[in-house]
Amino acid sequence: MSDATKPADRRAATPLAALMPDAAKIHRLSAVLTLLLLVAGFSLASQAFFSVNNGLTILLQTSVIGLLGIGMTMVIITGGIDLSVGSVLALSGVGTAMAIKAGLPVAPAMALGVLIGAGCGAVNGLVVTRMKIPPFVATLGMMLMARGLALQLTGAAPISQLGEAFGRLGNGALFRMVEMQSNGFPKVIFPGIPYPAILLLLVAMGAAYMLRRRRIGRHIYATGSNEEAARLSGVRVDQTKLYAYVMSGALAGLAGNVLMSRLVTAQPSEGVMYELDAIAAAVIGGASLSGGVGTVSGTMIGAFIIGILRNGLNMAGVSAFIQQIVIGAVVIGAVWIDQMRNRR
């Protein structure tokens, strides 16, 4: 975790260690390399892949995985796992939509959606810390409950006609420049930076700051590294874990709002298996499922690898079935790398 702080100082202290790049650095480097290879490969395979418009599409798609991945990273660093994020995403989106239908303005309705997510996360955290249920089981239960609730509340039907304002978060862009042409049709000069991408950047910076520079971040790492040692050192281990699960739930709620806003429809069946993408993003980015290791920047790289993989396979005309096979193999490969790292 101190890998980015003062590399020069460290080099001076251990001249030999500087020559041998450590495992975390190799992992990060290989992830970036994979990313570049994917971009290069897909660009050759399809002309349309390497274009501004497709770049923005990838940015949009990745923002949802990225938001989920950041929350997942916090939970994974504490040594836990959150399988409920895909379902919580749906429940939050449905909650927001129902609030809008009930007459609430968009902004407070979205805040409510995020709160619903945080509430689900809090239940996860309490079940894990108070009832001492393993995170895998606790969040698996929440995965079923949140999905069931979303489907029950909506009768499994999508909620549409939510108004233009609801679609702004998912479809709007900053610095979008449109010029009216003489023939009366608008011409897009610059498509702008999509709001979801800006949101992702802000959340990523906030989370990285929290993990690196704040006390709670240090405690998250300590808890995952050695829970008993952290407890004996005076870290409030249960509160720390609760915090991580609440953050994961809240970010799933935010991701739900982004996704549903983009579709301008609340889909109770949206986000199935998204938890796997989020876990894959975190693990590809160097987070260790045994806890104590992980970074936001790594997870961002991981999220882009997953996002580009999905988008590129689509553009190359690979069927959805084959895509599943590829992503599945990538997930296993990433966890395998994690295992190899721990064995040494």
Binding site: R218, A222, S225, S233, G234
Partner: peptide
């Protein structure tokens, strides 16, 4: 010893 293995010496010394 009760040390968090992934943290460095100062982080452990001041943990909590």
């Amino acid at each position: 010893l009760a040390l968090a293995d992934h943290l460095d010496a100062p982080s452990n010394l001041f943990l909590g």
